[in-house]
Amino acid sequence: MADWLERNVPRILLAPSFLIVLIFVYGFIAWTAWVSMTRSRLLPKYEIEGFIQYERLFAAPRWDTAMNNLFIFGALFIVVSMMLGLLLAILLDQKIRIEGALRTIYLYPMALSMIVTGTAWQWVMNPGLGIEAVVRGWGFENFAFDWVIDPDMAIFAIVIAAVWQASGFVMALFLAGLRSVDDEIIKAAKVDGIPTWRIYSAIVIPSMAPVFLSAFIVLAHLAIKSFDLVIALTGGGPGYATDLPATYMYAMAFSRGDIGQAASSAMVMMAVVFAIVVPYLYSELRVKRG
């Protein structure tokens, strides 16, 4: 009996959560896939109609805008956050005096919810209230910073707010990575008279490859699921210039009673996530096997 328990208790304990994940994650993915093949409007219907919703989706200019925005936002957000995070981490790593306080200050934006970040930056970047009004108040009458109201630039305004929020967190990741590099190697390099920038570019950063990968994965999924930041900062506007796939899906499912269309956009979003995560998983598993 004790023997049997010892063997099966882990399984029994894990079974409920396994079942919950199976139903509420994979089950509902399958359900969404099914609904995306139907003409569901207000309520889900289950007669398969083929790829009609995907045809509608790819014919919609608003979806094009949303996907373009995702790539612009995702690429800039990931690259700028990583570069800024790495720079901050290296600067903090110079054994400076109030490192603890500075680290907390930089990490603090991560403690805010995206809604707060979005609302605050909406005020900061509003031409009538924020930076532009202040600088004009100083006498620079021609100063313009109106990205939030310019449909071509608004997506970059969102990147600024997102980078502000996430780069502190990336900095913390990199700082941990920097600290884990063997001190002896760095000391040896210094003894050999190698300049500091060379130590970082040739020794420290290459040995932090796994940290880069983790940071990338965290930032990529933050970018793809971004929703609240856009809602708070621009509401998807001007027009629908800052729509992202997530806001598109929300509009279709909850405002327009077009569940089939929302389901098809959700499936495409999932495909994008898979395109990023599957290579990652593949490389991880391969490393372990080797």
């Binding site: 210039a241 327009r256 077009d258």
Partner: peptide
Amino acid sequence: LRGAQAGAITDVVTAHFNS
């Protein structure tokens, strides 16, 4: 109009007005 059609028109109107 129903949600999907009205929404489609609004998308065009707002895209035009804001660009």
